[in-house]
Every structure is written in structure tokens, then in C-alpha cells.
Amino acid sequence: MRKVLESILVPVLAVLIALLISAFVIVAIGKNPLQAYAVLVRGAFGSKQAIIDTLIKTTPLILTGLAVGFGFRAGVFNIGAEGQMAMGALIAASIASNFGNIPPVVAIPLTLVIGMGAGAGWAAIAGFLKAKTGAHEVVTTIMLNWITTFVASFMVTGPLATGSGTPKSPEIAASAQLPILMKVGAMELSAGIIISLLAAVFMYVFLNKTTVGYEVKAVGFNPYAAEYGGISVSKNVVLAMAISGALAGLAGVTELMGVHHRFLGELSGGKGFDGISIALIGQNNPIGIIFAALLIGALRTGSNEMQFLGVSKYIVIIVQGIVIFLVAADRIVRTIYLRKKVKS
């Protein structure tokens, strides 16, 4: 119980301290921090539109957070969520734009599976390279990110480009678009948010209640011990990367099916990297990740409203940076503390 409380307390404290430090920055630029934060909260939750906006932004962040968090639990550092997310959306977009007459019952799951498969396959390359050659996934996934960037920009300006020449693919078939849960004005909240929550449940059950999940975790915890215990390390490294990639691909494909309905040049927009901070803040716990993603999503949404006060959107990035620093610092402190204990 104490442990649970502690793991909640650290990120919450980190957020409060970060808001406090940023308040000084806001004072320094001559604005009232209380007013700024009030507007921030109102901008994120103050109206139906604001809530929809926040949830739209939170959806992909939950999924990339889960992708990276799952990787951490399995002992792989998947920096490639960005590329896997784009790959998932790109492949799904190129196929799902031809789904003319397929009914939604088939088209929606099929598109989701294609997106996840593309993400999984893309990440599995890095997993395979690690298992077979020992090439570190941090390096290979970054390389794969760049390949994705260039392939994507080639595709949207070349083979996939639509009429007017803006870098975007044609719209996916209406039957492959996610159903809309709520609509206010031009803003539509799709069922993507439910998918992301289900993915969190999946991660929890998989890691805690299944044998395969246990094996993946064991390899992540200590590969030598796991191998000694008869668990194949290379198989599980590939599997861990693939699942992590599937979650990132899911982030891309829900963004495609629920928000943009087409592939755009900068679709992933750094959300894969945000996944790293979210996994850190959420302590790699599925529930923690949901709240961490909600936090970042709300900050982003509210920051747009804050700009009306003349407070820059970068304040929110400062908040995010400080939170991550403090959460990471907590680990540093704990590690030092543990070392000391062991010595004495």
C-alpha cells in the first residue's frame, strides 16, 4: 500500500513543484500566474469543446505512453514509437483509402489490425537486430525513425499525393473511420479514446496475468536469470519490441481513423517522443500512463487558451520538462539511496 501511495505521490508532487517554478517564470514575463493557470484549466476542461479537445489530444499520448512503458517493463528502450506510429498510419492510410464498399464492421477492425501490424513489424526489425546481432535498439529505432520520416514524406508528395499538392494522402474510406462519440462544432471526439483505454487494460492483463507476459517481464528484469530459467531471451526481445511497436502503430492508426482521416506529412508530430516522458511520469504503470497522458494532453490544450493572455505556449513545455526532471531525479535519489544501503 505504501508503495502504491509513494508512486502516486512522486508524480503529483513533481507536477505541483513544476507549476510553482513555472509560476515564477510567468511572473517574470509580467503576467499573473494564478490567472494564467485558471485560464489553463478552463482551456482544458472549462467547456464541452475544451474537454473534447483534451481527450482528442490525450488519446494518442496514452497509446505512445503505453508503447514506451511496455518496452521499459520488458527491458527494451523503444525510442522508435515516433516512427512506428507514423508507419502504422501510413500503411493503414494507403490501404484503407481503397475500402470503398467494405462494411464498417469489417473495415474498422481490419484497418486497426493493419496499423498495429505495420507498427509491430517495423519495431520487430529493431528487436530482431538486437536479438541476433546485439545492435542496441536505441540506435536502430532512431535510424528507423528517419527512414519512416523520409518514406512518409516521399509517399505523401509522390505516390499518395492528392490533387492540390499539399503533402497529404487521400481520405480513407468512410467505412474505415471511427464512430464519433461526441461532436461540438467542427470538433469530433472519436471512439479512439475507448480503444486507448482498452489497450491499457490489455497491457495490465498481459503483463500481470499471462505466462508470456511473465516471460517478457522476466527477460526485461534480468535476461541471464531468465535464460537460466529456460526462457528464450531472443524470442522475447523480438516479441517485446513487436508489442511495443503494435501499441505505437495503434496510436498512429487511431489518429488516422479518428482525427485526420488521412495521412499528413507531420502526423506523428513528436507524440512518439512524448510517449517517453509519459511512460516516465506514469511509472510504466498502465493506469499511471493514462493519467500522465491526460495531464500532458490537458496542458497542451489549455496552453492554447493561455496564449490569449499573452502567455506563451512554451510555458507548458517548461512545466513538462520540470516534471520529467523531477520524476527522473526521484529515481536518481532512490538509486543513490539504495547503493548506500547496500554498502552499509
Partner: peptide, 22 residues
């Protein structure tokens, strides 16, 4: 005169909506 900067592409619709509401 006011300005809203967009962080990402999914900001376009909400930001334009906000501006129109203002």
C-alpha cells in the same frame, strides 16, 4: 490583434474554433 500558435496539426481545428468564438 491576437495570435495563437499551433503546436501540432490536431491543434488547427480547436485553435480556429477558439478564435472564431472570440
Amino acid at each position: 490583434a491576437k495570435v495563437i500558435m499551433s503546436n501540432e496539426q490536431s491543434d488547427y481545428i480547436p485553435n480556429l474554433t477558439k478564435a472564431a468564438e472570440e
